[in-house]
Simulated scan of single mutants.
Amino acid sequence: MNLALLLQFTKQDFVDRYSGSVLGGLWAFIHPLVMIFIFVVIFANVMGTRLPGISSVYSYGIYLVAGLLPWMAFANTINRCATVFLDKRNIIGKVRVSLHFLPLYVVISEALTFLIAYMIFMLFLVFTGAMPGQVLIIIPFVFLVQQVLALGLGLIFGVLNVFLRDIKEMVTVLMTFWFWLTPIVWVMDIVPPVVQQIQQHVNPAFLFVDAYHQIMVHGHLPDIGGLMKLVLIGHAVLLLAYLMLRWLEKDIRDFL
C-alpha cells in the first residue's frame, strides 16, 4: 500500500464519520470541547471533586481528561482494527491491498482525533493556569508507544475476527472491563498496595495512563522504566500480530 492510498483511506474515514451532518468535521472539535468542559468545569464547580493531596479545584477533572483522551484513542484503535478486514472486504477483494498496512489508516485517523482533543484540552489548561511545563514534549512518545500496542492487539483481534465473528463483541466487553480496571476514573491512592502492584506489573494500560497523569496533573516526567517496558510489550505484541497475519493471509483473503 502506498502513502497516497493510505491518506485517502484516512480522509475517507473522516468523511464517512460525519457524513450527512450539517456541521461535518466541526464535530471533531465539538465532541471533545463538550466532554472537556463537563469533566473539567462541571466536576470542579458543581460536584466539587478533588484529587487527594492537590488543592486545585480542577485537579480531578484534569486527571480524568488526561487519562480518558488517550484511552479513547487506544480503545478505538483496538476496536476498529478488530473489524477492519471485514469493513474493507470489498476493497480487499478488488484491489491488491497489503493487509499488514491497511489498519494504519485507523491509527492515523485516531491520532488526528486525539491531537484535536488534546489541543482543546491544553487550551483549558492555559485558561485555568494548570498548564504543565517542558514535560509536554514527552507526550508524542507516550502516544506512539501506546498506539503500537493498540495496533498489535487490534491486528490480532482483526485476524481472529475473520474466522470467528464473536471476537468483535468479546473485544467490546474486554475493553469495558479493562477501562474500569485501569486508574482513569479512580485513583491509585484508594486501592490496597497489592492492587497497585498488580497495576504496575500486569496492566500495560496503566503504564501509559500513569505517564499522562504524571505529565498533565503533576508536571513530572513519567516513569521511563515503565515506558521502556511498554515499548517492549507493544513491539512484542505487534510482532506476534505480524506473524499471525503473514501465516494466515491467504486464508483471510479466501474467507473474505
Rank of each mutant, 00 (worst) to 15 (best):
V159A: 13
I78W: 08
P103Q: 11
L155F: 05
R80N: 15
I91R: 03
I92H: 10
L64G: 02
L164S: 10
V173I: 15
Y105E: 07
V142Y: 09
W180M: 08
T172R: 14
I30K: 01
I137E: 11
P192W: 11
L240E: 02
M175L: 15
G48Q: 04
A111T: 14
L243H: 04
H235T: 15
G226K: 02
I190K: 04
A130Q: 15
P140N: 10
V202F: 11
L99V: 02
N90Q: 12
D13K: 02
L112P: 00
H218M: 07
V209E: 02
L86K: 10
V57L: 05
H201R: 10
G53S: 07
S21E: 10
R96G: 09
K168G: 05
N161G: 04
G133M: 02
S98A: 12
F177T: 07
P103H: 12
W186Q: 06
F141T: 15
Y60I: 02
M188C: 03
L5H: 03
I91F: 12
A117C: 08
I91H: 10
K88P: 00
F14I: 08
D166W: 04
L51K: 01
G67A: 06
G48S: 06
K229H: 11
P52I: 05
L227F: 04
V22H: 05
P204L: 01
L69T: 07
I156C: 09
V15P: 00
F124V: 03
G219Q: 06
M228F: 14
P103E: 11
F163A: 06
M188Q: 14
I38W: 01
W186H: 08
G152H: 05
L7W: 15
V95A: 11
H201I: 06
N76D: 15
I156D: 09
T172W: 12
P70F: 07
L230W: 07
